[in-house]
Design a protein around this nucleic acid. Structure first.
Lengths: 168, 168
DNA sequence: ATTAATTTTCAAAAAGTTTTGAAAATTCAA
DNA sequence: TTGAATTTTCAAAACTTTTTGAAAATTAAT
């Protein structure tokens, strides 16, 4: 397969993949393009490669920067801004995990704490099932939280090294 | 907090949580309602509790059944169909992982296999970066795949028991 | 200070997704 | 069978999200 075609396929399926994970298609495609670009590229490059508008590129790049996945690069002598993405997939993954934990898991666990002590007859099966469900999720979330914290602190070797530490 | 309010909050935030994970809000809310209901309930119960239309309930229940998270229950002597959800959150999680692995991770890894052997000058930095990125993702995905397989086979004790087996 | 290049913003348009509700299909009891 | 209860379907409406593009803001060179 030619590079041009392989690139197209990679970008398009990384985009589709992203939509299953709450990331919008264009954002994932820009990220894909940056990951396979050896050197930093400009907004215009991205507009051309993906055939999308300037505003679209600009907003999604901003999001990617907020996610900590893309950096603005100043190239001396160049007027335009350039962008580059973290290429190490382990770092990309831990960065995403870190952000999602902060944005989604932590608030959910906080809410469950409040919901757990619902007042009412503990004999009532409705109360009982509610409390059981909430505390089950809390317990599970807590475990997941611990595991993710370890993963995020460790790096390329977390698989062998750090999970063992976790079980020490 | 009263049960009624706690229920409302739980259902609404489980719905919001779901949307971050590619699951639609109503589907997640129905799932939440079923998880905290001690006994099986009908489509009409769900319509009333969540104030949504019959068609909406019907379609989302179908999806939940396809995901293996909800079961149809026949109650002898009752004309209507009843529904119930798996209450064990560990089973819920492994079921979701299993399905998403099948629907998302596996096809992605398959595609990357094809993309990895792009033809062209291995000295060209564009080719080089492309191949490196793709194989990095493949390697990472392969590890994740192995880990998920182990998690899915094990159950409530996977955390302590089975990950150790994985590293044997 | 002026100007041209570049980036950012954001209202409106387009595209995509979810929900409704009523008609069609199915089920089951008499 | 027949008919009432129930479930399913799906086109159209409502809602949500994404994209566009042109105007405003910013930047940097002269």
């Amino acid at each position: 397969m030619k590079l041009t075609d392989a690139k197209k396929q990679f970008i398009s399926s990384w985009g589709a993949f992203g939509t299953h994970w709450g990331i919008n298609k264009t954002m994932a495609q820009i990220h894909a393009l940056l990951m396979i670009s050896p050197d930093p590229i400009t907004q215009d490059d991205i507009m051309d490669e993906l055939s999308i508008s300037r505003g679209n590129v600009n907003m999604n790049i901003r999001d990617l920067i907020n996610w900590g996945l893309v950096d603005r690069v100043i190239i001396p002598g160049e007027r335009k801004e350039f962008f580059t993405a973290e290429k190490d997939i382990w770092k990309v993954a831990t960065q995403i995990i870190k952000e999602r934990k902060k944005r989604e898991l932590d608030p959910m666990l906080k809410l469950l704490d409040q919901l757990e002590d619902v007042e009412g007859d503990k004999k009532d099966k409705n109360v009982k099932q509610f409390v059981e469900t909430v505390s089950g999720i809390k317990k599970f979330g807590g475990q997941a939280d611990k595991m993710l914290q370890v993963m995020v602190k460790a790096d390329e070797n977390w698989f062998v090294g750090s999970l063992l530490k976790f079980f020490k």
